[in-house]
Computed example of a mutant assay.
Amino acid sequence: MKQPKPWVKPVLELGPVVLFFVIFMLFREDSVHVLGRDYSGFVFATLVFIPVLVISTLIMWRLTGKLAPMQIATLVLVLVFGGLSVWLDDPRFFKMKPTMIYLLFAGLLGYSLIAGRNWLGAVLGEALPLTETGWLKLTRRMAAMFLALAVANELIWRLMSETSWVWFKTFGLPVLLFLFLMANAGLYRDHALEKPDGDKPQDGK
Rank of each mutant, 00 (worst) to 15 (best):
Ser85Phe: 02
Gln71Cys: 11
Trp61Lys: 15
Val32Glu: 10
Ile72Gly: 08
Lys95Asn: 12
Val54Ser: 10
Asp30Arg: 13
Leu84Glu: 12
Val86Asn: 04
Asp90Ile: 00
Lys95Gln: 13
Val76His: 05
Phe94Asn: 01
Phe93Glu: 01
Phe81His: 13
Val32Ile: 13
Thr46Met: 07
Asp30Cys: 01
Ala45Thr: 06
Ile50Asp: 12
Phe93His: 12
Thr74Ala: 15
Ala68Asp: 13
Val86Phe: 01
Gln71Arg: 09
Thr64Ala: 11
Leu47Gly: 04
Gly36Ile: 13
Val78Ile: 14
Leu63Lys: 10
Met70Val: 12
Gly65Pro: 03
Ala45Cys: 02
Phe93Asn: 02
Ile50Tyr: 08
Ala68Tyr: 01
Val34Cys: 06
Arg62Ser: 14
Leu47Arg: 05
Leu88Glu: 00
Ile50Arg: 08
Gly41Asp: 11
Ser56Val: 01
Met60Ile: 04
Tyr39Thr: 08
Asp89Gly: 07
Ala68Gly: 03
His33Gly: 04
Phe81Ser: 05
Leu35Phe: 14
Leu75His: 02
Asp89Tyr: 08
Leu67Gln: 11
Phe49Glu: 11
Gln71Pro: 03
Leu75Phe: 05
Ser31Thr: 11
Ser56His: 08
Val32Gln: 04
Arg62Ala: 13
Met60Glu: 09
Gly36Asn: 08
Asp90Trp: 04
Leu88Gly: 00
Pro91Tyr: 02
Thr64Asn: 13
Leu79Gly: 12
Thr64Phe: 06
Thr64Leu: 05
Asp30His: 12
Phe44Val: 09
Asp30Gln: 15
Val54Asp: 05
Ser31Asp: 14
Phe94Lys: 01
Met60Ala: 14
Val78Ser: 13
Leu67Met: 12
Pro91Phe: 01
Leu63Arg: 11
Val32Trp: 04
Met70Glu: 08
Tyr39Trp: 05
Val80Cys: 01
Leu47Glu: 03
Gly36Ser: 14
Val52Tyr: 00
Val52Gly: 00
Gly41Asn: 07
Ser31Tyr: 12
Met70His: 05
Ala45His: 05
Gly83Asp: 09
Thr57Leu: 02
Val54Lys: 04
Gly82Cys: 11
Lys66Met: 15
Leu84Val: 09
Leu75Lys: 07
Leu53Asp: 00
Gly83Gln: 05
Thr74Lys: 00
Val34Gly: 07
Ala73Gly: 08
